[in-house]
């Protein structure tokens, strides 16, 4: 028995080796290197600055920095808005596209397109839409007599504009996940409710939603991680501006690392946000387990 086990373990090890190697090279090593950097004064553009060990100075700087806290606030604000709309609209669309109506399959496919586009391209598409002078959006609102709105160039609108683009791109993800879950739900409770005469709202609130809860939590969890990292769309549309109105965590880290070339500070900021996102994950998993037990 012991021999077989040992042998199986060896074989398992051999099969795992490529995965472990790739994981090490692409994830673990860069992460360890980033950890190493986070304790150093490392300016990529200025090799004449000694790249010395600075203890927790980088972390201290990040945690006491107004811009970092500001970017954290912007990130969570954006996350709250985009996730709310993505889930409300996404679940609504999922309910719609799972109806057995003619043409729904085609509509469903069309609705998935935004999700399949690279975020940079999405950014560019919305750049054309938002463009102040020549943009489509201002053209169309001009037709109904509204003055042009500086969508991405005013502090009042920029975050909203980014939220709209992000909602446009990721609502289909929520829709797809929810639609899949809806289709896997047993139809019989619905027929029971139909016979009992429960209203559509009641059926949605008390029958559908509770059954979707585990899936919605998983989707929320995936979306939250993604929303926390939001970068591409903002980079294309506003680069964090105007002022610092749309500067999220990822842009803050980018700016520290690749504008100021302070790799150490950038790495420290990355780890701080990693810790924040890990706490989020843990909370999500806890609540997921709770809802699983409750079933």
């Amino acid at each position: 028995m012991g021999y077989v086990n040992r042998r199986n373990r060896t074989i398992a090890g051999v099969f795992l080796l490529p995965t472990v190697a790739v994981l090490f090279l692409t994830t673990i090593y860069p992460m360890l290197y980033a950890l190493y950097l986070s304790f150093r004064n490392y300016d990529l553009a200025k090799p004449f600055i000694p790249r010395i060990f600075v203890g927790l100075a980088n972390f201290q700087e990040v945690l006491t920095s107004g811009p970092f806290m500001h970017s954290m606030w912007i990130t969570f604000k954006l996350m709250a808005v985009t996730l709310t709309f993505q889930f409300v609209i996404g679940v609504g669309l999922a309910l719609l596209v799972t109806q057995r109506l003619p043409g729904m399959a085609a509509i469903r496919t069309l609705l998935l397109i935004p999700m399949m586009i690279s975020p940079v391209i999405v950014g560019l598409v919305w750049l054309f839409i938002y463009f102040p002078e020549l943009g489509y959006l201002n053209y169309f609102i001009g037709l109904i007599g509204i003055n042009p709105i500086p969508w991405i160039t005013s502090t009042q609108w920029a975050l909203t504009a980014i939220a709209i683009a992000d909602i446009w791109q990721w609502t289909p993800f929520v829709m797809m996940g929810t639609a899949a879950a809806l289709q896997s739900l047993s139809p019989e409770p619905y027929e029971a409710a139909l016979i009992d005469g429960n209203s559509r709202i009641d059926v949605f609130l008390y029958v559908t939603l509770p059954q979707l809860k585990p899936v919605l939590i998983s989707l929320l969890f995936l979306r939250a991680i993604d929303a926390f990292k939001i970068y591409d769309i903002i980079f294309v549309l506003t680069k964090g501006g105007p002022g610092d109105a749309t500067e999220t965590i990822a842009l803050y880290i980018y700016r520290q690392s690749f504008t100021f070339w302070r790799m150490g500070v950038g790495a420290a900021a990355s780890f701080v946000s990693l810790i924040i996102i890990s706490v989020l994950i843990t909370l999500f998993f806890k609540s997921m387990q709770k809802s699983a037990v409750a079933r």
């Binding site: 102040p132 500086p150 160039t153 005013s154 501006g241 105007p242």
Partner: peptide
């Protein structure tokens, strides 16, 4: 300046 001055 144009209304989108912050993007100029």
């Amino acid at each position: 300046n144009p209304p989108d001055y912050l993007g100029l």
